[in-house]
Every structure is written in C-alpha cells, then in structure tokens.
C-alpha cells in the first residue's frame, strides 16, 4: 500500500507496480476484498491527493476532482453548480458510504446502479485521464460502454462537466424508504443555450441509456424564450417515449414479464416527474 501525495506520484506508483490497484473511498473495492473475491497484489491509496478532492472552473465547465466524496457533492454550494449531481450524491447510500465513496470511484466501478452515472451521461461529461504518457480526455460514456478503457498506469483524475446554469433533476426509485440501490433512475438536464433537453436513464441496463429521439422531440416543444412550461399530456408522452426507448417491446407476440412492465412504468413516471420539475 502506497499513499502518493500527487497524481504524478500515483501514476508513477501504478507504473512501477502494474498489479497494484488504485483505491479511493474503497466502498466497492474493499467490500470485494472482504468477500474474498479480490486479492490485490498492492494498493495505491488516492486519499492524500489534495488536487483531486475539490473542483476548479475552466471555460464554462467545472473540472471536478475524482476524489470528491458524495458527501461533499451533496452540499448546497455544489448543488448550486450542478444540481442533478448533488441530488444523485445525496441519494447514494447511507452517510457512511457517502462520506467515503468518491465521484471517480463511482465512474470506475461502473455499477449499473451507480447514482452519478446517469447524471454524467446526461451532462455529456468528459473524463480527464492521467497516465504515464500524459493526460487525455474521453467521454464518460465511452468508458462505461467499454469503448475506451483505462490503460495500465492510468487513473481518472478529473471529470469535466459543463456548467449549464439551468434546472436539472435526478430522481431515483428504490425498494425501500431508507437508502437502497436504484431500481431505476432518471436524470434530466436543460441546456437553454443549445435549446436542448438531455435525459439519461440509470439502473435498467449495464450503463446509462440516452433516449435521444425523445430528447429532440421534447426539446422542439419547449418554448425556450418564455416560461418553458409544457402541458401535462406532453410530459406524460415524454415519459412513455423515454420508457419505450429504454425498455423496448419484444419482437413478435411476446409480452414483457410483469416485473419488466412495472420497471417500464417506473421509468415513465420518473421521466415525466423529472421533466415536469425541470420545467416548472
């Protein structure tokens, strides 16, 4: 176990020992170690790297440190910047987990139920990956889809998120009132400058899904120059459009099983409510 104090040192440590695994909050990794599923040859702890524990501003974007904890992202000052990410962070498990778990960890673990993921997908965030050959940027969706994987010695250093200065909503359905994994989650962000609505659905597939046609259709109905409100029927139609795109009807005469039908209704309700709140 090494505890580097900077990203460069961390990259050097990982390069020196390729079998070592980087660990930030450890909320997923250490659980796997405890269960005996993982026996890392070494650990590179990221908790002492101060440069990734905060955020900075960069031409209309926020450069979020990968070491930002969910607890930090849930605070009001962060919520004023990126409201949907703050809402997702607040919903991500009990306080003990939120105090330890980080944004970068949530991205790299890439669990289907990762709460920050649909928000990052809707924001079309980019990852700043640092490695022995310098740094590069990849869209978050490329990493989640497995199109562009981290190379040996590489780390997620920052997440680049546009600052849209407009309403954003994250909603999550779970099986209980207390903290739990999402059965479905929806992020809706408005981008008034580009007159766009972007939506991503989490937990129903291995990675967040973007219903692009539904986004374009609803964006065309919004009166961007006035009060942006939509009729309830339009919101309902949007919800159903999103749900059908994410959970399509099976081919032929087959019927969706009741549990999947319920999941689709849940996505529809979440998308309708999320858009309604964003436009309210």
């Amino acid at each position: 176990m090494t505890l580097p104090a900077s990203l460069d040192e961390a990259v050097a440590a990982l390069t020196a020992m390729p079998a070592a695994v980087p660990v930030a909050g450890g909320t997923d990794l250490m659980a796997a170690v405890n269960r005996g599923q993982l026996r890392p040859a070494g650990l590179v702890g990221l908790s002492r790297i101060n440069e990734i524990r905060g955020w900075q501003y960069q031409d209309g974007h926020a450069l979020l440190g990968a070491g930002l904890t969910h607890a930090r992202m849930g605070r009001p000052d962060f919520a004023a910047l990126i409201p949907a990410l703050a809402a997702a962070a607040r919903a991500a498990g009990p306080p003990q987990i939120r105090n330890a778990g980080t944004l970068g960890g949530n991205v790299v673990t890439a669990a289907p139920t990762g709460d920050s993921l649909p928000v990052l997908a809707a924001l079309e965030a980019d990852l700043v990956v640092v490695g022995p050959l310098g740094s590069r940027e990849i869209p978050v969706s490329h990493l989640l889809a497995g199109r562009d994987l981290l190379a040996p010695g590489e780390l997620v250093g920052f997440v680049r998120v546009p600052l849209l200065h407009a309403p954003q909503v994250f909603l999550k359905a779970t099986g209980r009132t207390g903290p739990a994994r999402a059965t479905a989650s929806v992020a809706v962000v408005l981008d008034p400058a580009r007159r766009g609505v972007r939506c991503a659905v989490g937990a129903v597939a291995p990675m967040p899904l973007r219903p692009l046609e539904a986004e374009r259709w609803i964006a065309s109905l919004v009166d961007w120059d006035n009060d942006r409100g939509l009729a309830p029927e339009a919101l309902t139609a949007f919800g159903e459009y999103v749900a059908a795109a994410c959970i399509p009807d099976p081919q032929g005469d087959e019927q969706l099983p009741p549990a999947v039908l319920h999941l689709r209704r849940t996505v529809a309700a979440l998308a309708r409510r999320a858009l309604g709140r964003a436009l309210a």
């Binding site: 999550k172 359905a173 779970t174 009132t177 309700a269 999320a274």
Partner: peptide, 15 residues
C-alpha cells in the same frame, strides 16, 4: 412529510 421512496426519492405528493 417523508414520502414513499425516502427523503431523496422520487416521491410526488400528488401520486
């Protein structure tokens, strides 16, 4: 009012 789904859930009073 703690809605079904919890404090950070998706609950909507009208439903």
């Amino acid at each position: 009012w703690l809605l079904p789904g919890g404090p950070e859930g998706a609950g909507e009073p009208g439903a």
